[in-house]
Amino acid sequence: MIYQIPINVETFYIAGQSDAAAERFVFAYTITIRNESGSAVKLLRRYWSITDANGKHTEVRGDGVVGEQPELAPGSSYTYTSGAVLETPVGTMQGHYEMQTTDGNEFEAPIPLFRLAVPNVLN
């Protein structure tokens, strides 16, 4: 069965916590997960693939998001904000959430590739 779990991402550069001279670029991202399937789902785990402009690749795995394992009824959504620190002013993130239906079926909801970038660093 295919589960419709669209994921929307908005990104923000946090200049006040960043230090270009120290190669520290801090970003926040707000994610909205929508359950457009016909059954309730629970977010069990997350997986991130993060790549900076130097090609440095980091993988992050863990339970839930921001300390929670939200349950989404059909038609509902869940929004949270988290962050990432890069050594370059530009990078990308992508990954997936491991979800489970109320009847125990597990599946992955893909998180599309998105860019983290200091404003005006790219045309």
Rank of each mutant, 00 (worst) to 15 (best):
E10H: 11
P74M: 08
L113A: 01
G55E: 01
V65H: 01
Y13P: 00
A15S: 15
A22P: 02
Y13H: 04
Y78Q: 05
F12Q: 14
H96A: 13
K56F: 11
W48T: 01
G16I: 00
D63W: 12
K56D: 14
G104D: 07
Y78T: 02
T58Y: 09
T11K: 07
Y80C: 07
E23Y: 09
F12K: 15
G64C: 05
S18A: 04
D103Q: 09
V85L: 00
M99Q: 06
A20G: 00
I31V: 15
S39Q: 15
F114T: 05
P74L: 07
T81G: 05
P6N: 11
P110W: 04
T92F: 05
T92L: 03
R115K: 08
S49D: 14
S76E: 15
A109K: 04
Y78M: 02
N35F: 10
Y80N: 08
F27L: 07
E10K: 15
I14Y: 08
V121S: 12
T51A: 03
P74K: 08
S37G: 14
F107Y: 07
A40L: 08
V90K: 09
E68L: 14
Q4V: 14
V60F: 03
E68D: 11
T102Q: 08
V85P: 02
V9D: 00
G104M: 09
E71K: 13
D19S: 06
R24L: 12
N54H: 12
T30N: 06
Q94L: 05
L72A: 10
N105T: 13
D19F: 01
H57E: 12
S37A: 09
G55T: 05
V9S: 05
Q94E: 14
Y29V: 08
S49Y: 04
P89T: 04
I2P: 12
S82A: 13
V85Q: 11
Y97R: 03
T79W: 01
L116W: 03
H96V: 05
F25T: 02
E98S: 08
N35Q: 10
T102I: 07
M1C: 12
D19M: 03
V90L: 11
A22S: 14
E23R: 13
L72R: 09
D52A: 10
V41N: 03
V66G: 00
T102G: 05
L86P: 03
S37M: 05
K42C: 12
G62M: 00
N54K: 13
I111V: 15
G91E: 04
P70D: 02
N105V: 14
A20L: 05
V41P: 01
T88A: 06
I33M: 09
R46F: 09
N35H: 10
V121K: 07
V60E: 13
N123C: 05
E68I: 08
T30H: 03
G62I: 01
I33P: 10
I33G: 03
E98Y: 02
L72W: 12
I111C: 07
N8F: 13
F12P: 00
E23H: 13
H96W: 12
Q94R: 11
V41L: 14
A20I: 11
P70E: 06
G16C: 03
T101K: 04
I5P: 10
I111H: 04
V118Y: 02
Y97S: 01
P110S: 06
L86G: 01
G64M: 03
G91R: 00
R45V: 02
G16E: 14
R61I: 13
N123K: 11
Q4D: 15
G83R: 07
V60S: 10
V90F: 08
G95E: 02
G91Q: 02
Y47W: 14
E59L: 12
P89S: 05
S77T: 13
